[in-house]
Computed example of a mutant assay.
Amino acid sequence: MRVKQLIVSICIITFLLFILFEKESQEMIKYFPFDESMSFIEAETNLSLVEQTGNDQYKVNWKVDSNLQQPIYLRQDVSLLFMDGQLKGIKSLWKEEESKISLNEDIDESDSSHFEAISYHHGEIHYPNDEIKSIQQMTYDELYVIDSPYSPLESFHKAESDFQLEWAKTLTHTTDQALHYRWKQWMEKLDIASNDYILHPLVNIYEFSSKPLNGFSQAETNKIIAQLWEGLYKEYIIPLSNTSTASPLYMPIILISKNYDHLFVLFNDATNQVQALKQIIP
């Protein structure tokens, strides 16, 4: 009888460990060598003003789509939405044996604001003999919403008129001031000399999809960015996705050393403590 109970207990524990391992493996974005034979036929992040919901209220639609030529072992997309430099939302979805992922959400807001969203589209391709390769792409969008009592509700992606240019300048300047103040505090707390680094706000790293880091090829840059997202997903995205916080979460800053041998990702966590991820650049 005791032997039976022991066997049952071992089976239950093994099953629970299997479920836990599966969950942890699914909640990971991991870099593997890139598969040059695979490419996205669609990858897009889109922000749009959809409607006015009431007095001083409007909706912004946050949409992410990606599609591959064929289903692969694991597809995963993650998207970060910032409003005036503060984290507004995180969306993430993984699917097995799938080619397409779509994320869609409406955000209720008020007042004039600058919205920015960056998305990381990722996939794992498994081949015989335990060979694993990966595929990645980043997309970005921004939207200015002008909600003023002196003019009709308006939105734009890129300023065209003088009116839009003035609003974009005002909103961007206000956000930049607030962010640089926070980033300076973080660097001082961690005793990091800003003069030794090139600073990149997190949303700006999508530019490295087609513009390699100084002294690196595009392929080398892609690997560096993939490993950056691997750490960011594990240490920033997953913890914040599972935690609620009343503290404002400011946009992370990427610090790339001027001799290009390492980088830092600085951010404040759910307890408003500054955190630093370090990545060695080979």
Rank of each mutant, 00 (worst) to 15 (best):
V50N: 10
H157A: 08
T175L: 01
V145K: 05
S25E: 12
F115D: 00
F40A: 02
L6S: 14
P149T: 00
I29F: 01
Q76S: 13
T221G: 01
E42V: 12
S148A: 10
H200Q: 08
Y181K: 15
K278T: 12
K234Y: 12
L213W: 02
M83L: 12
V60A: 03
L6Q: 15
Q76F: 07
H114W: 12
E51K: 13
H121N: 03
S112C: 01
Y181H: 15
I7A: 08
P128M: 09
T271S: 15
D191C: 08
I205V: 06
G123K: 02
P33A: 04
N129Y: 10
E166G: 08
K95G: 08
A168T: 04
L74H: 13
I107M: 08
K95R: 14
E98M: 09
M28G: 06
N268Y: 03
H180E: 12
Q177G: 14
A226Y: 00
I107W: 09
A270W: 11
W62E: 02
A159L: 04
P71I: 00
E160D: 14
V64D: 07
S247W: 10
L20T: 14
E27Y: 01
S210V: 10
V265W: 00
S244F: 11
S210A: 11
F208I: 02
C11T: 12
K23T: 13
Q136F: 10
W94Y: 15
E42H: 14
D35V: 03
M251R: 10
F40E: 01
L153P: 07
H126E: 12
E36I: 00
Q57Y: 07
E97I: 11
S134F: 00
S241E: 05
D141Q: 03
A178C: 07
V203T: 14
H173I: 04
D56F: 11
Y140W: 09
T221R: 01
I107P: 05
F156T: 03
L74G: 03
D162Q: 14
S148I: 08
G89M: 05
T243N: 08
L165T: 14
D130Q: 15
D162H: 12
A168S: 10
F156M: 07
Y260G: 04
R182E: 11
S161Y: 07
E24V: 13
Y236D: 04
Q177C: 07
E142K: 15
E44W: 02
A159V: 07
Q137C: 08
T221C: 04
G54H: 05
D56M: 14
H157L: 02
I253D: 01
P201A: 01
L17N: 12
V265M: 05
K169P: 00
I12D: 06
W62N: 02
I237T: 02
D84L: 08
E22C: 09
K211T: 15
G215K: 06
H121L: 00
D108Q: 12
E96D: 07
S155G: 09
Q137S: 13
N242Q: 15
G85L: 00
V8A: 10
T245Y: 05
S66Y: 05
K100V: 09
P239F: 04
M38L: 15
L190Y: 09
